[in-house]
Amino acid sequence: MIPAVLVIEDELPMRRVLRAALGGQGYRVWEAGTVEEGLAAFAARSPQVVLLDLGLPDGEGFDVVERIRDTSAVPIVVISARGDERDQVRALDGGANDYVTKPFREAELFARLRAALRGAARVSRHAETLTIGPLRIHCYERRVYMAHVEIDLTPTEYNLLHSLAREAGRVITHRQLLRQVWGPEFVEDVQYLRVFMKQLRQKLEPDPTKPQLLVTTPGVGYRLRPPD
């Protein structure tokens, strides 16, 4: 099935470029220029993924994320010229799946789009195995293999890796990780994350000083990067 993308973006040149790029990759493209148009198009077209700009003439993209999340779990990728990490965290915590800062390269956008679609394609959040490149996670047995070698992880390390792997390719914010792994009362304790990410890298990365798999997005969170 050809995935349909709803592009909510008010800048016409950007829309033109996105239409060309997405069309070239075989996506079906719906377009909207305002919050209202976007929400109406979303209800009418039921796209498989939404590309959303934050600064819209009649409102904030954050509102669109919120309104869509009220009814749907469709992947939302925010595309914004706002580089501020606080905006990223706000969008991601609000339920967006990913955040791409404008300007971006075509390859970057499609990698994030594919990751978002892949995440949505997995029906069950409790899949039996997760395979990301050389990394394989057996969820029921809570076992982790790296290039067929079993890696011994502590329960917290496993939970952290599992949270990242479940949504491989997308940035998970500090708060989201802390809530999922430690619980809602620990969302401010970023240093826990630092400690356990370091341990995970030491166990999983071939060279922990050159992290390739567990990537930091400064000020936002972490991402498990699937091999290209």
Binding site: H174, V190, R194, T216, G219
Partner: peptide
Amino acid sequence: NKAPEALDELTYGVLSRLA
């Protein structure tokens, strides 16, 4: 936006991005 950070990790992150 201050938070406790490990300077060495930060350095490794930058180096791998600029690899």
